[in-house]
Amino acid sequence: MTKAISLALIVGGVVLLYFGGEAYHSLSSDVSRVFTGSPSNKAIYLIAGGVVATLAGLIGMATSSGKR
């Protein structure tokens, strides 16, 4: 069961990273970078969430593989 959850976290994290990259290169993020010097909050949140979910999934896969 934990392998399924870990795999779902990895897949979800990769999807979030994809959408975060799309948001990072969007027009609204470009406008935000012109005025503030940083990308939009949406892009940052999607990328950070993707990294956290992917790492949690990878850690879950690494720890659950040695139990059985």
Rank of each mutant, 00 (worst) to 15 (best):
E22V: 11
G60I: 05
Y24E: 10
R68N: 14
G21F: 10
T2N: 06
I47K: 00
G13F: 06
A53N: 07
L58I: 10
T36R: 14
A62P: 02
V11N: 08
I47F: 04
A43W: 01
T63R: 11
S32D: 00
S26Y: 01
S28N: 09
A43T: 12
G60P: 12
A23E: 12
F19M: 09
I59H: 05
S65G: 04
T36G: 11
G21V: 06
L58R: 04
S29D: 07
G50C: 13
Y45A: 14
Y45C: 03
V51C: 14
H25P: 03
V14C: 11
L9A: 13
G20L: 05
I47T: 14
S40H: 01
S38W: 08
G20C: 07
T2F: 10
G60T: 00
A23C: 07
F19N: 10
G13R: 06
G20F: 00
V52E: 07
A4N: 06
T63P: 03
L7R: 05
P39L: 15
E22R: 09
L27W: 05
M61A: 11
I59V: 13
T63V: 13
V11F: 04
L17T: 02
S28Y: 12
A62C: 04
R68Y: 11
I5G: 02
M61F: 05
L16T: 03
G49Y: 05
V11A: 12
S65M: 11
A53M: 15
A48Y: 07
V11I: 15
G50E: 11
A23G: 05
D30C: 04
G20E: 05
A48M: 14
M1Q: 08
A8F: 07
Y18G: 07
I5H: 00
S64P: 14
G37N: 01
S26R: 11
G20V: 08
A43F: 00
V11G: 06
A56H: 04
Y45K: 01
A48R: 05
L27G: 03
G50M: 10
Y45I: 13
A43N: 07
I44M: 08
G60F: 03
L58Y: 08
S32N: 12
R33F: 04
Y45Q: 00
L9F: 05
S40C: 07
L46T: 06
Y45D: 08
S64L: 09
L9T: 06
K42S: 09
G49R: 02
G57M: 08
L9P: 02
P39W: 13
K3S: 15
S38F: 15
L55C: 15
L7W: 04
G50T: 03
L9Y: 02
M1I: 12
G21L: 13
K67P: 03
S28A: 13
S64G: 09
G37I: 11
V34K: 09
Y24S: 08
L46V: 09
T63G: 05
S38D: 13
M1Y: 02
A8P: 08
Y24W: 09
A43S: 14
